[in-house]
């Protein structure tokens, strides 16, 4: 089980998408590739933007599939608003996945 402190990387207001991307690429994806469980620990994070959460997990949901990703990622110590932001991102990704567009 790998634990990642979002507070240590992004501070109390998690809004920097570059940091979210770095966490995703350098920590979450390698762990998922090894079939490892990951805890994203939001202890100390008072707010997060939708953009931050999107940059953190949307690509993982798409590439690894919702079921696999959510079975391997746990969200710890999220306050009510952070939980809701994560919920919005997870839901719009689920709603949107599978819709074919001209681009696809």
């Amino acid at each position: 089980m790998k634990s990642i402190s979002i507070f240590n990387k992004a501070g109390t207001f998690a809004e920097n998408k570059d940091i979210a991307r770095d966490i995703r690429i350098n920590e979450i994806i390698p762990a998922l590739t090894c079939n490892e469980e990951i805890t994203l620990d939001f202890e100390g994070v008072e707010a997060a933007t939708q953009s931050f959460v999107h940059a953190l997990i949307s690509d993982i949901l798409r590439k690894y599939g919702i079921d696999h990703a959510l079975e391997h990622i746990l969200f710890k110590s999220c306050n009510e608003t952070v939980k809701k932001i994560i919920g919005i991102v997870v839901d719009y990704m689920q709603e949107g996945m599978g819709i074919e567009t001209q681009e696809d």
């Binding site: 953009s51 999107h54 949307s58 690509d59 991102v89 719009y92 949107g96 819709i99 567009t101």
Partner: peptide
């Protein structure tokens, strides 16, 4: 145009 955007942008 893809639903859900790219890995960095959702359009939200």
């Amino acid at each position: 145009r893809r639903e859900g955007g790219t890995e960095q942008n959702a359009g939200a």
